[in-house]
Design a protein around this nucleic acid. Structure first.
Lengths: 351, 351
DNA sequence: CTGTTAGCGCTTTCAT
DNA sequence: ATGAAAGCGCTAACAG
């Protein structure tokens, strides 16, 4: 079974040197071996029903024997589809995005697509150029928690099909998280525990989710008889949470909601260091439910946002859009996860 | 500036419907606009020095105007290179790999390459098929902490250029971590604090790094007058660490090394729950120095393994191999990072 | 320095 | 049901 002996064909290019196994058999080799035309060989894969059963089986068998694997570049060139998707996240180190990617990747693979990942390092200025890069090698891209200015977003959306996750912009499809559902549960929980004044330790000023979260709080909490005290905007990091500690202490609240779990951990850590008892003296609720929230001591009560599901939904939407029958990207519910940082309100005394 | 008005050429295919901007201009359009042949237009990009300065500038200017972007699929088809790299990790949720990917990605992008990520879900059986998938769309792949059987590894290595990270196998290049350096620092540290008997809470039985770590311990610690007590193999998870707690208590040691940080946190959490004082009654040293180690309370003393650097080194090696001048992949040093889980030895009493 | 020529490997009408 | 032919957009000899 010589590989490219080109039965009847024209001149055969010298096989590239230094290549490894399996880079040999082309569709032409396969066709020759099966005694059919390349067209038929091709159809045996792409339109099996249009090929006589016995011929098809012969072709498929031979394909396995010759270890024929279709050349993706050639397919991409002719079909115009790469069968890859791009996925842009702000920070791969952030465990939130790990879960998201995993969800996206899972579905993508089962659809025969690969996922190209890009990390913006939290820098909104490089996002657009990353999308440009990706647009050349993928069929569509998902943009997670994008901080691009609206104009860039629109430009990106013109470069290739795009779906947003955790950000909204008119005219661009988006998988979003419904803060209200989780916040409502938090409100009921806190109220049941006797809290009245609840602080909110905010995230970055320009963050879409911070806006969504604080808006949700401002809307829902009062409806449940809870007063919300805004405690400023902070870096969405452990250190940012730590630095918010004094502000929290000063605020005369019995509970705080925090922009995300990492900050919540920083806050709790610092407060514990001050000798405060948590949750006895202060209840804390984080946001995201990253893996470490339950490894932390005390384990964080938090609002879970379904990140793997978001990744999946984004890919699902893109697939539907690519095949011409776009579905509506979902708005995903969030939920309160009760752990150890919330308890009955005890007013601290100025002793 | 009509896009594909094909000046002198043959029949022009109908432009694809439904595509977005910038998918218009081809090299031929560009060449026509500049009044040169496609060959020259092509060279203006790939071998600028072989094109007359003024023509080149004209071409480049026109390229920008027409928003010409080269078609990667066509390039890949003819050159045989995709300019992408594959990267396989066991679990994207594991923060260890986030850092690794980030390092790889950074360098890759600056080399003009994209990175295709795949997650095996810790399942060694799918690894090979993932490599097969990747081999079709990338030029080379990096395999992180692979658990593939040796035979599969060799097969993978034949499919496309491969570099291992945190695993070794004869004949396959590998970026590795030198446990000894970190372990030696740990030995000195522990010895200085008066410890004599140190436990080792192991990771998964078949794990390459567990073997490396425990071997390193068995070798280095005795040289420093430290006795090592093996405390079994455990799941490399938070829960796995928790479950090792009783075993540690029973072992009559004043310090333990733990296979990784996540397990160490589980262990410490449980022990704290038992009422043990850490580090007063037991010193604990983790492994990896994941981000959360310092957010944990008490912050984990641990052995840092330079993961971003490993990612970078892997890509660097691959690039060198791809360009025909393979460098030797490095063995990266590990270091002790002192935080709050180690202190002077105090023998617990059976009171 | 520039143009001509010949494909890379595959899909897809259009005939047969 | 199958084959012939025409390229997808680009690069790489090889001639000028």
């Amino acid at each position: 079974m010589p590989l490219s002996s080109g039965s009847g064909g024209g001149p055969v290019a010298a096989s590239e040197p230094g290549r490894r196994e399996a880079s040999g058999a082309t569709l032409r080799d396969l066709a020759a071996a099966a005694g059919v035309s390349v067209a038929t060989a091709s159809r045996a894969f792409s339109r099996p029903e249009k090929v006589d059963t016995s011929t098809r089986e012969r072709i498929l068998r031979l394909a396995a024997e010759l270890k024929y694997v279709p050349n993706r570049a050639a397919q991409a060139l002719i079909t115009g589809r790469t069968m890859s998707l791009g996925l842009v996240v702000p920070d791969l180190n952030n465990p939130f995005y790990g879960g998201l990617i995993k969800g996206a990747q899972d579905l993508a693979r089962s659809l025969g697509r690969s996922v190209l990942i890009a990390d913006t390092d939290e820098d909104p200025d490089v996002e657009l150029s990353i999308v440009e890069h990706l647009a050349q090698r993928t069929d569509a891209v998902v943009l997670c928690s994008s901080r691009m200015p609206d104009a860039d977003l629109e430009r990106a959306n013109r470069l290739c099909p795009v779906v947003l996750v955790n950000r909204e912009h008119a005219g661009v499809p988006a998988v979003t998280f419904d803060s209200d559902s989780g916040v409502r549960e938090a409100a009921v929980h806190l109220r049941a525990l006797g809290h009245r004044r609840v602080g909110y330790v905010g995230g970055p000023v320009l963050s879409f989710s911070d806006a969504a979260r604080s808006a949700s709080l401002g809307q829902v909490f009062p409806e449940h008889g809870l007063e919300v005290v805004l405690l400023g905007n902070h870096e969405p990091t452990f250190e940012g949470g730590r630095r918010a500690a004094d502000r929290v202490l000063l605020a005369d609240v019995t509970a705080v909601m925090v922009y995300n779990d990492v900050m919540a951990m920083g806050l709790v850590g610092r407060l514990l260091g001050y000798g405060l008892e948590i949750p006895r003296e202060l209840s804390v609720i984080g946001w995201d439910d990253i893996e470490f929230s339950e490894m932390f001591t005390p384990a964080l009560t938090t609002i879970r946002v379904p990140r793997a599901e978001a990744g999946r939904a984004a890919v699902e939407y893109l697939e539907s859009a690519l095949t011409g029958h776009p579905i509506a990207p979902p708005r995903l519910e969030t939920r309160l996860v009760f752990r150890q940082t919330t308890a009955r309100a005890h007013r601290r005394r100025a002793e």
